[in-house]
Design a protein around this nucleic acid. Sequence first.
RNA 1: GGUCCCAUCGUCUAACGGUUAGGACACUGGCCUCUCACGCCAGUAACAGGGGUUCGAAUCCCCUUGGGAUCACCA
Length: 467
Amino acid sequence: MAFIRTRFAPSPTGYLHVGGARTALFNWLYARHTGGTFILRIEDTDQVRSTEPSVQAIFDALRWLEIDWDEGPFFQSQRLDVYNAHIDRLVAEGHAYHCTCTPEQIEAMREKARATGDKPRYDGTCREKGLAACPGSVVRFKAPSTGATLVPDAVKGDIVFANDELDDFVLRRSDGMPTYNFAAVVDDVTMQINTIIRGDDHVMNTPKQILIYNALNQPLPVFAHVPMVLGPDRTRLSKRHGATSVTAYRDMGLLPDAFINFLARLGWSYGDQEFFTRAELIEKFTLDRVGKSAGIFDAVKLSALNADHIKATAPQALARHLLPFMQAQGLNATDDAYLHGAIATLQARSKTLEEMARQAHFYYTEPVALDDQTAGKFLKPEVLEWLRALADRLSALTSFGEKDLETVFLQVMETFQIKLGKIAQPLRVALTGTTVSPGIFEIMVVLGKERVLARLARAIEYIEKRG
RNA sequence: GGUCCCAUCGUCUAACGGUUAGGACACUGGCCUCUCACGCCAGUAACAGGGGUUCGAAUCCCCUUGGGAUCACCA
């Protein structure tokens, strides 16, 4: 297989969920790894459940994940003529037939089968009638009732299905729309998809699809069924497990690279390595390292990985992702050196971008809020002369680097015979209005001389007023 | 219920017949320290059970048990 062609084919019946995102990711990574082509196809043959907002939500999520596609998006609803041409061919060649049995008749067959303990299946009433298409008729596939169908799977190995498990399933519904199994095969054939990576909830569909490939006289693609993503209760991940929409994680302040790193490691591994950049993922992703067993989605681990990515990303690159959160919190920041400096002090202490934005407030709040709750506790008369001395010496500084600041502090500490711990908290409150922040030297460097002196002056004033 | 898949610490996983069964998250101690974090060090914790095969099984085979998926004119 010289040239890999993969695809992601979601149905637009809701937001892109975690499981779908991982399927998209694996297909994308594999295509990028092999220098192949990744195609996006929207499976909207279910007229009732498919919606335009869902289509947009999927695009939106993929865009955030930075998963781009080379061809498409193709919409199945716009390819009816392609499916019909293949239907005609299958009927003409005797692989399929028109069926006029009504849903009621089908249900009766199932009831009867259940009563006798047989498998509920279509009994083949119209199979040999040679009926023509007519309003309300469906097209069924002439499935073999003997023998077995082998599903070669790149992750699970060979899986064998007895053909008598299958019945003459529907290819085209009475409303003229193709069914999933048929449309998917026709699309994969015509789009020359040669590697199908999808959730293993699709393995039961695969023998049917292989039968269609055979009837169409087409070579089989490589199938790779990746294990499911489960919720903490070990059932398939769904809405009731909390956030399952991909964009919800974006809105929580996750980095897309952290999210795909996490998704990749759920079901795929590369020795002991846990942290992967996007480029590393592309470089190292192969199908033979995909695991066989289902995995539980662990939000705590995702959060830890996000923290690692935040630490490992350059402030300049982080800014773009952080800005929306700052704006949402009413902070008027711009992508400049000041912001980058602030980010650098916050990286080690933020698990999410949302959290980072919250911690960045003091950098952008002028004047800093001095509430009596905290300010009253630390900005007391006894620190007054220390702060004054600090302000004096700092104002004399011509360069405001960490080394310069340290020198000033040592002098003040020496003068008053105090330890850094004594003055650090009052100073922190003066500069940030809170008792928790990055190191005082680093924030002073970022704030710069002017802001520092202004905030100090204000704290001194606060103490004087309060007495 | 039929069919199919899966099975290593609580969780994600490494191991491709021979290891004191490794790493990460979480948790618990300690160190560092101007607060909070980060970081560093240490610790608790797993081969589902039973039969085989083999000089030797977490690794191969079978059974049991457990979990999951799927049984549509949904995808």
